[in-house]
Design a binder for these strands. Structure first.
Lengths: 212, 212, 212, 212
DNA sequence: ATCTAAGCGAGACGGTACGTCACGTCTTGGG
DNA sequence: CCCAAGACGTGACGTACCGTCTCGCTTAGAT
């Protein structure tokens, strides 16, 4: 056969993928379509057929990228939320943490918030995409929060001798709880009160936890 | 409780339902079948066809009781968990609260725990059954916890001047958070540490960590 | 469970099928749709999706009756051709045979003729439907022909001492041959000539052309 | 022969094709792969994707030679059967004809025989390849047979005054008939009996049609 | 010794149809 | 009026091929 060695296995180099490269435009169209369908109808509305039609794409193309509709919805949510970490700003770490919580509450108030929770609650915990999803929507926020707590300790605003992991659970847990349970509003008033309660036990000695 | 009145209680009359009465055995068989299918495969495995076949029941019979498969799964979970409230026992309210949290963690560790969360996360928040479900799995626990906190205040174990609702969110929220996020184990060690942290700020001590 | 013995296994009786009976109307609509699609486009045009849509029927309904599109096409052809055996008429068996051949040639000249041949040529020779199809389109005609040949012998028009099976192959074979090969027209002129040739050797004459 | 001129024979010039010439090895690999897939699975198994993969060839390369899978299968069958005409051998034309029929029966008994028939029965009667196919598998044999009949007349074994075309239909038709109908074996016993019957009516006067 | 046009493998692309599954509704005969 | 059974139209599933279209690479005659 001709072209017998079609790839040069360059040692230590990039084996460039053969054949026609994937069409990034198709991928984007799929995600955009999925996003639209997520907004109306939620996760259940993200069907392969619907996405294919709306994106002007063949079903096999979608399956080339993701194994099922669930994964497409996840990817759409992932692509959508651009992380925007709450960096420690002007007046200290604790105000920054307060802003982050308010921001999360705002996100959760949208239909997307419920979608995110549904995806988190769903099955297939162990796929790569699932981990990325969790990482993006939970661990990233948590990592930011961890840094802010450490900064607060450095600033002398918090005691240095508490279990940070549990504190983080105390801070973020109630948000999901209210979202799931729906027994009360999930707004800035709540996040502020929540933070006050958590920090009350962690304030540096004779240091006041003022309005932070 | 779900589906308590299968017939319309016509006010002022004892209009006995005409025709053949509903077969309670069928209802139980349906719920039992749904429970079995929940355990393997989770919520997605509870299909109308599967339940009908496994229960030896016609599909219309199921639809007579519940409007869709989701509701059947909810009802099965509701019927299954018999509440068993953690009453304030021997040595005080706070140990009882501690026991309740451990018990919840134990439930969440089972496959059923994840199913419960999935159902909570699902759509149709506003049906009667959905509210009953929330009431059973969230508010009932929360109500118990509220009573225990009140008792602890009465016992003098806690300060009387904190926001009980936020405290309850702090106590139960992290459980759902860990279940959803899966970033760390959900066991007695965690629930104990969690409770310690929350109560640390609420203990009835001379020294306070207040805002002023 | 209620209604425990739902079927009375009447010994030696008809176990009447339970549940909703099949809708004969659906079956007929399917066959009619398939027939229409056969006429334009031939066998390849008979797709499950097309038939379902045109017949106003769900795909699973079609699959309840037939296992694949091929079978549907066969069934449509079978239902269509009402056999109409060429009975030995007024003036003897041989004229009747002649009429039968002309009639077959007429059928083969239509688009349906080619479809029939394609189905005969197709795979899955051993299904029940395939056998029925062969039986209808080949053996039925052949059986008629056999009876006519026997009658002709009785009438004294043909010798009694020839191999009827081979004679039948000689009579019907060339029809399919011309249809497949397409090297010449398939009309009454041909069928008449064909029959003359075959019968020439079988005529009850004094002079014989035998092997000995 | 198929695809003989892969380049347009520009009249009046020997414009040698520019660029890289076609790889004959690829063409052969394709046909070999198609042949293999024909043997198991028949015509339906000859898919473009399958052939491409099995032949280690890109799909566009196949499309450069043939317009669809059907054509590839035809070409594979054409390439395979090398015609081998039954020339009038030692002891006369009729024995040669007898041998030809036996040989055809042998071919038809193989899975390839059915494939040939399916291709003949298929649609697109009018493409160049279809005509070549018919020519190869039907007319070539028929032409040989015609020559043999003529020779037999010359030899004095047959009467000179019969319609040769109809006689040829009588001879070859039953072979296809039995293949399609499958009502009886297609072997040398049958072809011999068939030939005897046909020739019985055509034997020269007072000349015996002996074992031929 | 380049240039350049065509063939090459690979494989992604928009489609169409496949055959399956579960949905929620309906229609039976029987209790 | 309930029950079991099961057929119905609907619609999404995930798969297989279709025939077309890039890709980057030969290959070999023309420059």
């Amino acid at each position: 056969m001709p072209n017998t060695p079609p790839v040069k296995p360059v040692p230590g180099g990039e084996t460039r993928p053969r054949g026609r490269p994937r069409d990034e435009g198709a991928r984007l169209a799929i995600l955009r379509a999925a996003r639209e369908m997520l907004e109306r109808g939620g996760v259940a509305a993200v069907t392969m057929e619907g996405v294919a039609q709306r994106a002007g794409v063949g079903k096999p193309t979608i399956y080339r990228y993701w194994p099922n509709a669930h994964a497409v919805a996840m990817a759409a949510l992932l692509e959508d939320a651009p992380a925007e970490p709450e960096t420690r700003a002007a007046r200290g770490a604790l105000p920054a943490l307060r802003r982050q919580l308010r921001q999360i509450a705002t996100l959760f108030a949208t239909p997307m918030g419920r979608s995110v929770t549904m995806m988190l609650a769903s099955a297939d915990q162990d796929t790569e995409l699932s981990k990325a999803f969790r990482n993006h929507f939970i661990m990233a926020r948590r990592t930011d929060g961890k840094a802010l707590l450490a900064a607060a300790i450095t600033e002398g605003a918090l005691r240095p001798d508490f279990d940070v992991e549990v504190a983080l659970d105390l801070i973020y847990g109630p948000l999901f709880y209210r979202l799931l349970a729906g027994h009360a509003r999930l707004d800035a008033t709540f996040t502020d009160a929540l933070l006050d309660h958590v920090l009350a036990g962690l304030a540096a000695r004779r240091q006041r936890v003022t309005k932070s």
